[in-house]
């Protein structure tokens, strides 16, 4: 397939995933802030960190509406939900010939829906419903990609984009954890990663926060864990290159293999020793590097051959 097309598919999937993750994060943070008003300011600051954004000056005046404005609606930042949706749609336009009608209409519908909204139009009582619609559509996008596109190279690039963004989000959420955080914080963290029920089913009788964090980092079966996402990327890369599993044909496979190995053979004790935040930070940086080497391997500005 065309390198340009592969690159657009990759960024389209990343941006839809980010829009979904941010929408969930904002919703969960707002819900938790209702129960723990004393800690709300801290949690909103944390949300900016996870989103990779600077904290606006008006934060002190009204944390909730400022966050909503900045993280959801501010299209000038390129990092907000609305900006991600716009970029995803822009990418989709560029690869429209590769998409099924279902996938295209889903992205276009998401774009038209978000563009038509504003903080004023949504109103304070409509926020949760609005964010929910974004999540629903973004998840429908993932489902439609899986169910209507051929699982060929194009699909692998979508899978890589989605998994990289997901892993980054999980690592950024874990990075915000402090040892003295109360139980409501790690519950928020689980919710932000859609992990409440899966973790409840997987945990031991005497579960503690450390176990939840280890679950988010190392679970081999939970689809948003760092380990699971790294495996997805590694598998997709091997399907693209044709190299046997456990070997590498290029720098991106080497990078993904290293990340997989360090996650496959880590345990809860390693997290405790290094510190969850530090561990997440280190893996997050490696995933960013992996992203760069995928770009230079598959979307080179000057073709090699």
């Amino acid at each position: 397939m065309l390198s340009r097309v592969a690159e657009s598919l990759y960024w389209m999937a990343r941006n839809v995933e980010r829009a979904e993750d941010l929408a969930r994060l904002i919703d969960v943070t707002a819900m938790r802030a209702v129960d723990h008003a004393d800690d709300a300011g801290e949690r909103w600051l944390s949300a900016y960190n996870i989103a990779g954004m600077d904290v606006p000056e008006s934060h002190g005046l009204s944390a909730r509406s400022t966050a909503l404005e900045a993280i959801v609606f501010d299209v000038d930042s390129r990092l907000s939900v609305a900006a991600c949706v716009r970029i995803a749609r822009q990418n989709a336009v560029g690869v429209r010939a590769e998409l099924t009608t279902e996938v295209w209409e889903c992205v276009n519908g998401l774009y038209l829906f978000v563009e038509a909204q504003s903080p004023r139009a949504v109103g304070p009582d409509g926020v949760s419903t609005f964010l929910r619609s974004i999540r629903d559509t973004a998840q429908a996008f993932g489902g439609l990609c899986d169910a209507t596109l051929a699982h060929d190279d194009a699909w692998e690039f979508l899978r890589i984009g989605r998994s990289i963004e997901r892993a980054r989000m999980t690592s950024r959420v874990l990075r915000e954890i402090r040892d003295d955080d109360g139980p409501h914080v790690w519950q928020l963290v689980l919710e932000a990663c859609c992990a409440t029920a899966p973790f409840a089913r997987a945990r031991s009788q005497s579960s503690d926060p450390a176990e939840a964090l280890a679950f988010l980092a190392l679970s081999p079966v939970f689809p948003r864990s760092l380990r699971f996402c790294a495996r997805q990327i590694d598998r997709a890369l091997h399907r693209l290159s044709g190299a046997p599993a456990g070997t590498f044909a290029d720098t991106s496979e080497r990078a993904s293999g290293r990340i997989c190995a360090s996650l496959d053979f880590a345990g809860q004790a390693d997290l405790a020793r290094e510190g969850t935040s530090e561990f997440a930070d280190r893996i997050g940086a490696q995933i960013d590097e992996l992203g760069s080497s995928i770009v230079s391997t598959y979307f080179p500005r000057v073709p090699v051959r």
């Binding site: 397939m1 065309l2 390198s3 340009r4 097309v5 592969a6 429209r96 010939a97 590769e98 998409l99 190279d153 690039f157 693209l240 598959y298 073709p303 090699v304 051959r305």
Partner: peptide, 29 residues
Amino acid sequence: ARRMGVELVEGTDLIVRDNIVYMKTTRGL
């Protein structure tokens, strides 16, 4: 392009070498 099942290319997706036109793909030219 979608209905014919062919690639939709832009100028930057193409390269000409020895008077032969190629598309730049993820598997080379």
